[in-house]
Amino acid sequence: MNRVSERRRIRCKVNGHDIDREVPVTQLLVDFIREDLNLTGTKRSCDVQVCGVCTVLVDGRPVSACTYLAFEADGAEIQTIEGLASGSELHPIQQAFLDENATQCGYCTPGMILATKSLLEDDAQPNRERIRDYLKGNLCRCTGYQPILSAVVLASERIRHD
């Protein structure tokens, strides 16, 4: 048994809230979010940064929390799916996913929505090719992707026309 027991203090913002914790240096960001902060909207699946279900935004950039150490988030601003809606009002991307039936089992949905947010902040009117390319790191086994594509287009239209 050769376990690293070193801990480090991290201060970060998660969904706008200040967080100040000690974490083991080996702890993954996904476990910090799910277990320590109890934000279970962030999912885990492949553990090797392929499927994208653990996607969170670190300083606005999409990151696979399954292969990102928690202490590396020191000083960062983290957004998880729980931080997207304001009160009972859904974010336009969430609303578009709902309207286009872009969620079935829902397991990929939090990561897919956060990746979409990052895309639309980078490109307010992405074309089909850009969407397909940007989201290819987020797997979905249920929808066949087409409804997600429609939802991204719908969300981009709504955000631009708001």
Binding site: T80, I81, E82, A85, F97, L98, T109
Partner: peptide
């Protein structure tokens, strides 16, 4: 009618609880 799925809001907000989310 294509009404939105009734579990949709929980799923797009991350509130949906799966087995592994139970504590």
């Amino acid at each position: 009618k294509s009404i939105p799925r009734v579990d949709g809001i929980d799923k797009v907000t991350g509130r949906a609880k799966y087995t592994g989310d139970l504590k």
